[in-house]
């Protein structure tokens, strides 16, 4: 099947400092793709650049195609039709994305008028349906309330309802649950998974929370310092990570089960984009790095098992299973 979105060699520089170094990414119709990485790795910038939402001082190059439409360098008018229409985006902080002085019902109707041409009672009926769909209790009674009269979780539901107003083919969710409480986070993840199935819509889920990504997504890209370093099916990547950075991210998370041991942090910090190390950007923090890594940058290459990997000395395949076996034996004793 043809890809819904194809991003090729997307590069972004702020004030001459490159922060995104050539991203190639495909989103298939209806799939859930996760983008993970630490702050500053470029996971949000990728999509802001693709949708033309970066400030003008950002220098963007590369191509972004949505179906037949080329979005790179497209005029604002054309982009505005796509944004909120075929591609919608929701952000981390819902309360700052809603207009505080307009009633939520009116904001929803506005989105419906812009993207679907609905007005009057039709728009109102559809807005109520959307509010019901995202789980706002008593939608009719709360249609004329202001955003501050809703809780954070409900504001995020309203944002999702607005994003759905244009019946998008792709929903980009940028850390949609980070600002929410644990029990509310679970509700929103559940809602996103349900909506995706009901509406047959693709989702790009941007998050630093590997657990949340694992629950929503089928495919994952791990980013580091403006590049994709590992990419593949969720099960494959999370069961048997091969890039030392992916593996490091997992080891750094404390567990809810099993013995309480000291964590295994990744030493050092994320490099400054103005001052990237030579060769592989992860090399100064990598326990597996050799001389080669300091001079040559590895390309993102397809592997036999279907993943893509950018590492000259990846972790051996199946190493995880061996270790897990050892760990299980340790626990039995």
């Amino acid at each position: 099947m043809a890809n819904l979105v194809e991003i090729r060699d997307l590069r972004v520089a702020f004030d001459g400092v490159p922060v995104l170094h050539g991203i190639d990414l495909d989103v298939r119709p209806g799939e859930a793709l996760g983008l993970v990485g630490e702050s500053g790795c470029g996971k949000s910038v990728t999509w802001l650049a693709a949708l033309g939402l970066l400030p003008s001082k950002a220098k963007v190059s590369g191509t972004v195609t949505l179906g037949e439409t080329d979005l790179s360098g497209a005029p604002q008018a054309k982009l505005e039709k796509v944004r909120g229409g075929r591609i919608a985006m929701i952000f981390q902080d819902p309360s700052s994305a809603l207009n505080p002085v307009l009633k939520v019902g009116r904001q929803l109707c506005e989105a419906l008028r812009l993207h679907r041409g609905l007005t009057g009672n039709d728009a109102r009926r559809e807005a109520l349906r959307l509010m019901d769909m995202v789980g706002i209790p008593d939608a009719r009674g709360r249609f004329s309330l202001y955003p501050h009269e809703f809780s954070g979780g409900q504001c995020q539901r309203l944002m999702i309802a607005m994003a759905l107003a244009g019946e998008p083919d792709l929903l980009i969710a940028d850390e949609p649950t980070t600002a929410l409480d644990a029990t509310i986070q679970a509700q929103i993840l559940d809602l996103l998974a349900r909506l995706r199935a009901e509406m047959n819509m693709a989702i790009v889920f941007i998050s630093h929370d590997l657990g949340a990504v694992a629950q929503v997504c089928e495919r994952v890209c791990v980013m580091y310092a403006g590049r994709i370093v590992e990419q593949g099916a969720v099960g494959l990547l999370f069961e048997r990570p091969r890039h030392p950075y992916t593996r490091g991210l997992f080891d750094a998370i404390p567990r809810l089960h099993g013995p309480r041991t000291p964590l295994v942090p990744i030493p050092g910090t994320v490099p400054d984009p103005r001052n990237l190390p030579k060769g592989c950007a992860f090399q100064p923090r990598c326990a597996h790095a050799r001389g080669f890594c300091q001079s040559e940058r590895p390309d993102l290459l397809a592997q036999k098992d279907g993943r893509k990997l950018a590492c000259a000395f990846p972790l051996p395949e199946g190493s995880e299973e061996v270790e897990r076996e050892v760990r299980r034996e340790g626990m039995l004793q």
Binding site: T183, L189, G211, A212, A214, Q215
Partner: peptide, 19 residues
């Protein structure tokens, strides 16, 4: 409600409502 890699969404207790 704590999302953990490898645990499916449907096996979780999802609370209704908000605090």
């Amino acid at each position: 409600s704590v999302p953990e890699p490898g645990r499916a969404l449907d096996s979780r207790v999802i609370l209704q409502g908000e605090p």
